[in-house]
Write a protein that binds this DNA or RNA. Structure first.
Lengths: 116, 116
DNA sequence: CAGGGTCGTTACGGAACCGTTACGTGATTC
DNA sequence: GAATCACGTAACGGTTCCGTAACGACCCTG
């Protein structure tokens, strides 16, 4: 069930959500961090540093740093893979789920406000 | 004509767009910068530094710096207000319009890919 | 069990952003 | 026309991010 948006609707939606997100969230995640967070929560696990780096087209340290930052914020956590101890498995957290739930509500609200 | 999204659709839309934007755009604008850019292009002028600062809930230097950065990228430009020379009027550019046009297309594409 | 390959992290110098403060210029008020 | 206010910017120290490179830990093959 695709969602058909006009150019005006698409940009107004993005505008409304970005604006509210800037106003509400003092944490100010970067676009990369948001991408990583959404990917972890929306795509079936397991998620590794290397895998995320490949998907986003960035280097591994970028992922490590983003996980450091979001880990401090309680949005994600990390565990060693016991089967292959070189790997790190990235796990979801309650806080992260709540954060994305709010973001989802925000998008839905802004979608309802659209016109034209 | 509001757009009704499910929670899953909303987050998947955001996910797809963020991911593509990270992969495509080496410039990596911050969420604040994107908000400012969208606001300038979607809301009728005139736009001033003070006005934008109030709308985004940030300090004036934040706006000045964002305009510096995006000005270097050719996405916006600035002109003195001749009627009140204390003011600076923020103007749109061809490059900025193109940038947002691509962003709009990206959002529309991702909307079409949604399911459930 | 030695060697090479893979994993994530750390170290490093550089760049960009932050908030606060101070400043220069222009408008306004008395 | 002097004092005051408004506007945008520059300067400051601090924080965070970047990309490259090097590192330790781990797996696997011969």
């Amino acid at each position: 069930m695709p969602v058909e948006l006009s150019a005006s609707q698409a940009l107004n939606l993005w505008h409304g959500v970005s604006l509210e997100q800037v106003r509400i969230d003092n944490r100010d995640l970067t676009l990369r961090q948001i991408s990583i967070l959404l990917h972890i929560y929306l795509v079936p696990p397991p998620h590794t540093v290397r895998g995320l780096a490949g998907i986003l087209g960035v280097t591994k340290p970028v992922i490590t740093r983003a996980l450091d930052t979001m880990g401090d914020l309680g949005l994600v956590s990390r565990m060693r893979d016991e089967r292959d101890k070189r790997n790190v498995i990235i796990k979801r957290t309650v806080n992260g789920a709540l954060y994305l739930e709010k973001l989802g509500d925000l998008i839905i609200d802004q979608g309802r406000k659209l016109s034209i």
